[in-house]
């Protein structure tokens, strides 16, 4: 566990209810297809949020908008004081606050595990090699890949690669982590190890936003769950409410299919 990250992730008194991400009436369309039709919600510091819903409901698009990988045509997303639609947006400042892990890991195949984790802090943060390497080794150990530092991604299992991707994102010391269906491409037996890593991260106090199909995990780890369908949030609430006592028939139908 890293003290510096812990310090930053644990909310200070009085800021408890200050949202770190604030999403207001976000709309997005691809050509004539509207994928987000006015989505609004807030995420507090240290909160773990899961977004669930049928495929094609705009979940992935939504979280890709939070770090500016996709742009929005209407509404606003404010991340720790930075507005993503600001024409003078400092996209680097935004992305340094927001780490993202993808479904397909997207590791750099020609770099070892250690090099993958060290690349961005060295090039972007311009930190010294020793400092970065020390932190990288700690992170690799945190995701339980000790001994794999000098191995190439192609030699690792999907679950191991995904944990490297998490360590790589953490090396930039983000305030918020986005997880875009990170277990969807994995073998069932390696899903567990990745979820354990995320769970530990959540317990350390990291703000996490997950798009996921792992309902058991969502129920166990999330502070709040949003159910999306057809580009809108149909229903939201704490896990006990959503899984125990969903109000909307669409939510109930979806849950009955996946559980």
């Amino acid at each position: 566990m890293l003290s510096s990250e812990q310090d930053r992730a644990i909310p200070l008194n009085g800021q408890q209810h200050e949202p770190i991400v604030s999403i207001r009436d976000v709309r997005k369309r691809y050509g004539s297809l509207e994928v987000l039709k006015g989505v609004s919600f807030d995420i507090r510091r240290g909160e773990v949020v899961c977004i669930i819903g049928p495929s094609g409901s705009g979940k992935s698009t939504l979280i890709r908008c939070i770090n500016g990988l996709s742009d929005i045509q209407h509404g606003s997303i404010i991340v720790d004081g930075i507005e993503v639609r600001d024409p003078r947006l400092d996209v680097i400042a935004l992305r340094r606050k927001v780490g993202i892990v993808f479904q397909q890991y997207n590791l750099f195949p020609h770099k070892t595990v250690l090099q993958n984790v060290m690349l961005a802090p060295r090039l972007v943060l311009k930190e010294s090699k020793d400092v970065v390497e020390q932190r990288a080794r700690q992170l690799i150990s945190k995701v339980k890949l000790d001994g794999k530092e000098n191995v190439y991604p192609g030699e690792l299992s999907g679950g191991q690669q995904q944990r490297v991707a998490i360590a790589r994102s953490l090396a930039m010391r983000p305030d918020i982590m986005l997880f875009d269906e990170v277990t969807a491409a994995l073998d069932p037996e390696t899903v567990k190890e990745v979820l354990a890593t995320i769970k530990e991260l959540a317990q350390d106090g990291m703000t996490c936003i997950l798009v996921t199909h792992e309902m058991g995990f969502a129920r166990e780890v999330a502070d709040h769950i949003y159910f999306t369908d057809g580009g809108v949030i149909v229903e939201d609430g704490p896990p006990s409410e959503i899984f125990g006592n969903a109000r909307d028939p669409r939510t109930r139908r979806f849950l009955s299919q996946v559980l």
Binding site: N67, L69, I92, R95, R96, G99, I100, F102, Q104, N106, L107, F108, L119, A120, L123, V124, R168, S169, M172
Partner: peptide, 14 residues
């Protein structure tokens, strides 16, 4: 080179 590799670089602020 997959488009997602560029996206990963973008997300890491390269």
């Amino acid at each position: 080179v997959p488009k997602q590799t560029r996206e990963a670089c973008e997300s890491l602020c390269l």
